[in-house]
Structures are given as structure tokens and as C-alpha cells.
């Protein structure tokens, strides 16, 4: 699964991030938190500037995560790409 390392690191530091940066966006590459940003566009711009075109995790810092709904995929009308 892509970004497995980054997601694991996010989960490990999430309580700390929630205490100080709730509602902002974390930028993580590997096991390094590169920064916290007001919006995902700023996080991405900083990520490509610092690391180049690499997989990176940009994640909203929030308690609850919601699932996305795409019925065309749920019903198998379109195929999801893991």
C-alpha cells in the first residue's frame, strides 16, 4: 500500500498534532514531519520544493476521519485503483 510508512508515522504522532495543530495539514515524507500548513496546496508546494516529486502524505489533523462515497465504484460500475 502506498504511503504506509507515512500513515503509520502520522498515527504515532497524531495525539501530539491534535494538541497543537488541529484543523491544519501535516506534511510527512517517510518518518519525518516536514511541517504543518494551513491548507493542502501550501503543504504540497513545500513538499515538492523540499523533496521533489516523491510520494508524500498530506493529511488533515482531525479526530475523526470520514470515508469517501463514490457509488459508481461501490456498485462496481467503475473500478477503484488501490
Amino acid at each position: 500500500m502506498p504511503l504506509e510508512t507515512e500513515l503509520e508515522h502520522f498515527r504515532s504522532i497524531k495525539p501530539e498534532l491534535l494538541r497543537h495543530h488541529k484543523g491544519k495539514y501535516a506534511l510527512i515524507v517517510g518518518t519525518e514531519l516536514l511541517g504543518v500548513f494551513d491548507d493542502p496546496q501550501s503543504a504540497y508546494a513545500a513538499g515538492v520544493q523540499q523533496q521533489g516529486n516523491v510520494p508524500m502524505l498530506i493529511k488533515l489533523i482531525t479526530e475523526e476521519e470520514h470515508a469517501e462515497s463514490v457509488p459508481a465504484m461501490t456498485l462496481g460500475l467503475l473500478r477503484a485503483r488501490p
Binding site: L3, P55, A67, M73
Partner: peptide, 20 residues
């Protein structure tokens, strides 16, 4: 050549899956 920036949970025909 765009690299992934996240994963989200999506319902699919095979059940909920993480998608890039």
C-alpha cells in the same frame, strides 16, 4: 508522473478499501 499525496477510505464492490 504525479506521486500520491494521501490515502482515503472508499467503498468498493469488494468492500471498503484504502485508495490513493
Amino acid at each position: 508522473g504525479v506521486q500520491p499525496i494521501g490515502m482515503v477510505l472508499v467503498g468498493t464492490a469488494g468492500g471498503p478499501q484504502q485508495q490513493a
